[in-house]
């Protein structure tokens, strides 16, 4: 008689992988994060069956949110069909038995790495960001105690100096992703490495946004209808990327584009980074 090693039965795991006490701890942290938008709440990050840097923070936040009725969508750089997105989607299908989808409109929880879907999110959706570095001051202030004091006093001059130095050297702010924002007029926050193209989508969004940083052990949040201001100067207002081309598959002119090299001769094309949006524009059926 052999030993049954059938691990595809999600019954062998705690629901959504984490134990109940861990989920309660993360849930308490999420509620604090929502109450103080943009403030990074420390939490006891757990070891996950995925290396840090692959979305362990987002994974833990999602695990604490998910229920049996949820419909989960996972994207990596906008795409539903890349390795990271597929593994995380399969992980939750296995350990929580939740339904998954690629359609932005029908998801209740969307876990994302580095993009916000093009299709506007609704108030019944929660978007969970995988975030490598939640502390926008870390590049200048390696010392956690000092960074925390600057947040306590709302002293963000150092970030404005960074912007100013870019402008004086290059004529523009040379940050195209992870562009810092002020949330609810108080906390300087990092929106995770989304392109700055996506920053305006965070401003007064209808959906709740949660950011999980596993290695850095921080959770922060942007509730719906919250002011999110990308840092700028009066004479150098914040602007987003502008594309000369349109998507070569669906023709969309309003979406964030990825550049694809086609051959050794340097021919190139641009396609939508949001694969579900692109498929929708083409009238294609996406997988549910």
């Amino acid at each position: 008689m052999g030993i049954d090693l059938a691990f595809d039965d999600h019954g062998v795991y705690s629901f959504a992988y984490l134990d109940e006490m861990t989920k309660r701890m993360i849930r308490r942290a999420i509620l604090k994060a929502v109450a103080v938008p943009g403030y990074q709440v420390p939490f006891g990050s757990r070891e996950m069956p995925l290396p840090p840097g692959w979305g362990t923070g987002g994974l833990q936040v999602t695990a604490s949110l998910l229920g049996r009725e949820d419909m989960l969508k996972v994207i990596d750089q906008g795409a539903d069909d890349t390795t990271n997105a597929i593994s995380i989607r399969r992980f939750f299908a296995r350990v929580a038995g939740v339904a998954t989808t690629e359609r932005t409109g029908e998801a209740t929880v969307i876990q994302t790495r580095h993009r916000i879907p093009e299709r506007a999110l609704t108030e019944d959706q929660i978007i969970v960001f995988q975030q490598p570095q939640p502390e926008p001051l870390r590049r200048f202030i390696p010392h956690e105690v000092v960074a925390r004091k600057l947040h306590a006093f709302a002293q963000y001059g150092v970030m404005y100096v960074r912007l100013y130095e870019d402008i004086s050297r290059l004529g523009h702010v040379a940050m195209s992703s992870d562009y810092p924002v002020i949330v609810n007029g108080r906390y300087l926050a990092s929106p995770s490495p989304i392109p700055k193209f996506d920053n305006p989508k965070l401003h007064r969004s209808r959906a709740l946004a949660l950011f999980g940083a596993g290695r850095e052990r921080r959770i922060h949040a942007i509730p719906p209808f919250t002011d999110v201001k990308s840092l700028d100067f009066v004479d150098h207002p914040f602007t987003v990327q502008h594309f000369e081309s349109c998507c070569s598959l669906c023709g969309a002119q309003d979406s964030y584009l990825d550049e694809i090299l086609l051959d050794d001769g340097g021919r190139r094309a641009f396609v939508c980074s949001d694969t579900a949006y692109c498929a929708e524009q083409r009238g294609e059926r996406t997988k549910s």
């Binding site: 705690s14 629901f15 109940e20 989920k23 309660r24 849930r27 999420i30 509620l31 929502v34 109450a35 604490s64 949110l65 998910l66 229920g67 049996r68 108030e123 929660i126 709740l208 949040a221 509730p223 719906p224």
Partner: peptide
């Protein structure tokens, strides 16, 4: 059902606090 009832309650609390 401690696992699913508390999950459902948490989502309602999260909704209440974010609205």
């Amino acid at each position: 059902d401690p696992v699913h009832d508390s999950q459902s309650a948490f989502r309602r609390l999260l909704r209440a606090l974010s609205r």
